[in-house]
Structure formats: structure tokens, C-alpha cells
Design a protein around this nucleic acid. Structure first.
Lengths: 147, 147
DNA sequence: ATATATGCAAAGCTTTTGCTGAAGA
DNA sequence: TCTTCAGCAAAAGCTTTGCATATAT
């Protein structure tokens, strides 16, 4: 889960390759959106990314954010996560992980759990073929719990 | 998880009590929305409920569906579930359960798992105080898997 | 050169809100 | 009777789309 400069450069290189393979152009906008998401820990909304990236690229439009996110998602480089019902959020962490969501400060914390990854529906739904599992734990983060 | 006529009547009676306790009026619209949700197995969207209930109550407006759902949710009688990012869905099943979602036919199946209910974030997030856990399993339902 | 993407503005949806007449307590 | 609600229409998000220009290959 390294997000150092070196790690980011590596992932951007990977992105460029995947774009080429898929016949997509490598544009500064797409790179900037992907980089912003790689650097972010906050599972940002399209709007949040727009504000962030626009600072360094004032001509950027919100529509381009949406289009870039769609492209990156289709390339399997990022994923949409459903943190709350009223805002789409994105995550560049593609390792199998789950989310802790603080109901007070609304922070989202990634967490890893091998047992959860292994969950398979049993008895009454034997026939169901599980492909992926998403776990959302609502509660209070350490900081908010202390108060 | 019985949804027979008798069980539904019982839950509507309970609803009436809760409305009274909360100082809310018991209107035919609210009862109809709640009944429709109790009878449904499909975790419907507001729009789906609107179409269903409007048949027996043609004067019904979509705004009333939204308002009724908000009221029922605040009363703790139903819950919003995040099945997919592009449509709000509702569930009258308030027992602790999780969802199997067929990626092909989009059906949503409730499932129960004691172990999952007991999941608590460990090591790196010891301080996090879990209140509730939601699990979404994407995959193929028995029927779609067979093809 | 050709294909693809950006930025803009407009359109499309879903959801919320304000208001008036109607209905429930 | 007094409060709360339904229905309507308008407004308010958020997201998508069409199109002309600009950019990447």
C-alpha cells in the first residue's frame, strides 16, 4: 500500500501501458486524475477530485473527471466504492480490502482481513457462485470513540 | 422472515403504534408503501415502489414515496441498502442479514451468517468501535451460474 | 492524417423542497 | 380545530451526452 513518489511513478507507468493496450490516449488529464487518486487516502468523490486536480490544471472540466474515472475503472486501475448512498466515491487501492467507516467524522479506513476474503455463502444459497465480497463496517474510529 | 398475510398485518400494526408514538399520522399512503415493501423480495427502488403502489392508489405521487420512505426509515421500520451505485434501494427486512447480488440478473438475495455478524476489525484498527457490518457478495445466482 | 479526448453547454435523472388544499389526530 | 400530510410543480443536485475544437498517436 505504498504511496511514495516511486510507487506512484510505477503505477502511472503501468497505467500508460494499459491505456496503450486498450487503444486509449494517454492524456495529461487522465494521468493527473489517476495520480490524485493514488495520492488520496480519502476515497474522494468526483467533485473532490475535480477541485484537487483543477488547481494544477485550471482548464479541467468536471465532465473530464467523470470520463477519466470511467476510463480508469474500465481499465481495472481504480474502483468505485459505495461508502454512502449520496455520493459516488473512488479508490485506487485495488488490493482486496474492506472499509471501516466512521459514522461521526465520516472518515473511511481501508482494512484487510483474510478470513473475510474467504467468506462463501453456505447452506441455503449453495448454488450461488461468489466472485467478490465487499464488507463495510460502520462504527467509530479510534479518535472519535475516545471522546 | 415470514411474509404471509398474517405476518404483514402484524407488522403494519406495529408500524401504526410507532407512528403514533412518534407523533406521525397514519396515512393510507404510508401503509401502502410499507405493505408493498413488506411483500417485495426485490429490494425495490423508490420508482419501482411508486409504480407498484400507484396501481391501487392512482393519485399517489412520487414525492410521497420519497417522504414515506424517509419516515419509515427514521422509525427504524425499513432500511436503505446500497446494492448498486446508481439506484437507491429499500428493504423491510430488519433482521441482521447480508446480500448476495447476481451480477447477471441483478437479483438480490438476503442471506444470514452468524460468523459475519461477529466480525470485528483487528490489529491495525483496534481502536475502531464497530457498530454494524454490511456484507455484499457479488457473483452468479444458482440459476445464472447453471448457464 | 486519423482517431480519440477535452471542454462546454445542454439534457437527463433522481431526489428534495415550498406551497396549498386535504386529511388525520 | 389544529397539526400533519399528500400532491403538484419547481428547484436542486449529480451524471451523462452531443458537439466543436484540440490533442495524442
Amino acid at each position: 500500500m505504498e504511496r511514495t513518489g516511486g510507487a506512484i511513478r510505477k503505477r502511472v507507468d503501468e497505467m500508460i501501458i494499459r491505456c496503450r493496450d486498450a487503444g486509449l490516449s494517454v492524456t495529461p488529464q487522465r494521468i493527473a486524475v489517476y495520480k490524485a487518486l493514488l495520492k488520496s487516502e480519502e476515497h474522494p468523490t468526483p467533485e473532490m477530485l475535480f477541485k484537487t486536480v483543477k488547481r494544477q490544471m485550471p482548464s479541467l472540466s468536471l465532465a473530464t473527471i467523470y470520463k477519466s474515472l470511467d476510463a480508469l475503472e474500465k481499465l481495472g486501475l481504480i474502483q468505485a466504492v459505495e461508502i454512502d448512498s449520496d455520493s459516488r466515491r473512488y479508490d485506487a487501492n485495488m488490493n482486496r480490502h474492506h472499509h471501516l467507516i466512521c459514522t461521526k467524522c465520516r472518515n473511511v479506513i481501508d482494512f484487510y482481513d483474510e478470513q473475510l476474503n474467504a467468506v462463501r455463502p453456505s447452506r441455503p444459497h449453495r448454488g450461488f457462485v461468489a466472485e467478490s465480497i465487499t464488507v463495510k463496517v460502520l462504527g467509530l474510529c479510534a479518535r472519535c470513540a475516545r471522546r
